[in-house]
Design a protein around this nucleic acid. Structure first.
Lengths: 376, 376
DNA sequence: TTGAAAGCGCTAACAC
DNA sequence: GTGTTAGCGCTTTCAA
């Protein structure tokens, strides 16, 4: 990321003179015992009380109009709604949360928003939640377990449930935190909790099978963070698939799940003498390909590379990356559904969802070369 | 995005038997007039009252320990803190918000999380906010102005301020909404509101200048959404720069700010007879390059392409993309600072920050060919 | 169907 | 320095 530090900043104090928040005109039918409360910014906050007064009903009637409309006379309801509309009344969710214990919000915590793997998941989760009248707040942990724990704690009181995507926390920590708020874990199996998994083991088997089919007999696996459950699952499946196919699997890692992680691993990959590489994710695969390019090693001529995720740059890089596609959008929806089940019908059991993955063969894999690539 | 629809789902009802939330052991020193309230999920919610009782002080003392520690006797404070720790007490932010009018949260609304342009901005905003003891909640509008407005409204009561990134709302709508909550607008100039801009006009001039220097005399501009302020700014600057350089600028658009937008525009670009193209963003530029590749048009041999943003895939695509780098991370920090100024010192004036952009020349631009590219 | 009243967890004057 | 008291805006019994 190129950053340009020069900054021009001007502060316009002339705006000091302008009343930024024009007062809202309000008519009140009844004697105004209390004037509408004024918010922190000087704007007028319309409360349930203002509406009640104006309509000439009790606050509880107004409340019901919004939280249990069927319990209120259609005519009254109409009047309340009209006045509410006119006044621009919107229920204060924080206040509602205080009494009901429900906020109508869900939290979504991801390891790294800038990993293109996550955005489709985030989008689909938000869309599904909106359909079910919830909002999703997203936060990023920077791959730091401590930030992750702090975020969970902060979210705990402000959302009804939490989606934990690719958590880096220990299983123990997750168990401990799970008593504070219901949550669904994505990309990690935690006993006793609802989970949404993508079948990376199957993906790893396909990928290794693909390389075996191309004649590769020595395959390097670039693992991800040691705290990544998916990484372990991939490793186990890849080892199994390689050995049952009569090939050697060299495990190299852990690596940061980033382009840089792939770049840094390039030398070791070459040293390993492998002719095929399976990377924990596309970012690593892409970094590796770039580094190999610099080193003058031909992909797939000398070395075949397979990634995981099928992020956009994987289709764009040259050679186009062979990779295991992950059903991220489906996972986002499934995770929201699982979470809302937990939230709306607590105690009725946890669920486990496993989504299939699929190998997408592109141009970064080819038959193994006769000789191993030049290690220098 | 490849989606795999097959799903295996199992519900584990045996967990029904397990007490998912072990009751927290609590000792209470005083007669327990009220037992600790039980949360929606059956877990024990520790409130300020429980702590007060256990320490043997009034709730307000406990409250002060957290919100104004200097006003409380160090010894008392220590005891309160110890008990709070022991009980696992954490202040309920929703309740605090109700009295103070402050939530400690900021909202960040972006047009499209899956556009790689945004994540660095989001990350830096979150980091800066965390430094200043705020949390950032992110939401995505799907480029839909109605969703944007709804999100602003929802956020309004739950955050202290809002960062609007690349809003698609009309200026009028923004003005109207700005009375409900303080906000800072990024990538758009709105009079009377605090803004953080990236100097895209300067970027456009550099880009056009670069193409002119390579001998291009007919340049196509692929604009973005018509509601994008940046797009208009780029257009104006590009037109000016081209005409003052004695070249023709063909404006083609509006285009969706996506890869597909670029793909769809390819035919028109070829028809325009331009030898150089400036795209509203890298996604469009990348889509265009891919489509041109399919059509057998050489980039940069027959057509030079320049993008905006410098997202990761721009460095990865072949040919590597010449593009205008945007200071997204700096913008995120600056926007948070501007917003917190508004939030913490309301009425002290709005600010405008303009950040410089920089042309990064890579391999997608070259001297103009002698003849125009074959239009068929 | 509606009103009255209590209270969610916390803060903020104001007393003491 | 600490206790008292009165709410913040809303929901939710319970009566009427």
């Amino acid at each position: 990321m190129m950053e340009v530090p020069r900054v021009r900043q001007e502060v316009f104090s002339e705006y000091l003179c302008l009343p930024r928040k024009p007062a809202l005109t309000m008519r009140q039918t009844f004697a105004s015992v209390s004037s509408p409360t004024s918010g922190r910014d000087g704007s007028v906050a319309v409360t349930i009380r203002d509406v009640a007064k104006m309509v000439g009903v009790h606050v509880s009637t107004v409340s019901r109009t919004f939280s249990a409309p069927h319990l209120v006379n259609p005519e009254t309801r109409t009047r309340v709604l009209a006045v509410a509309e006119e006044l621009g009344y919107r229920p204060n969710r924080a206040a509602r949360a205080l009494t009901t214990g429900r906020t109508g919000n869900l939290g979504l915590i991801v390891a790294d928003i800038s990993n293109p793997f996550f955005p489709p998941l985030i989008k689909s989760a938000q869309a599904r939640a909106r359909e079910r009248d919830y909002h999703v707040f997203v936060a990023d942990t920077d791959e730091d377990p401590r930030v992750e724990e702090e975020l969970i704690r902060t979210f705990a009181k402000q959302v009804d449930g939490l989606l934990l995507c690719s958590p880096r926390l220990s299983g123990r920590a997750i168990d401990r935190l799970s008593v504070e708020i219901p949550f669904v874990v994505v990309n990690r199996l935690v006993k006793g909790l609802s989970t949404v998994l993508m079948d990376v083991a199957q993906g790893a088997r396909s990928a290794v099978g693909h390389l075996l089919g191309l004649g590769h007999r020595r395959i390097a696996l670039l693992t991800g963070p040691s705290s990544s459950w998916n990484s372990s699952a991939i490793e186990a499946a890849a080892i199994e698939a390689a050995s049952s196919g009569g090939a050697e699997l060299v495990v190299l890692g852990p690596n940061p799940p980033t382009e840089q992680g792939g770049e840094l691993a390039a030398a070791e990959v070459l040293r390993s003498g492998a002719t095929g590489v399976l990377a924990y994710n596309d970012l690593i695969a892409i970094g590796l390909i770039e580094a190999l390019d610099e080193l003058g090693v031909a992909v797939p001529g000398q070395l075949s590379v397979v990634g995981f995720d099928d992020i956009m740059p994987a289709r764009v890089i040259s050679p186009k990356l062979t990779t295991v596609a992950m059903p991220t959008a489906t996972a986002g929806r499934a995770a929201v559904d699982a979470l809302l089940h937990l939230v709306e019908a607590p105690g009725t059991g946890t669920s486990r969802t496993t989504l299939d993955t699929a190998l997408v063969v592109r141009a970064s894999t080819a038959p193994a070369p006769a000789a191993v690539p030049n290690p220098r």
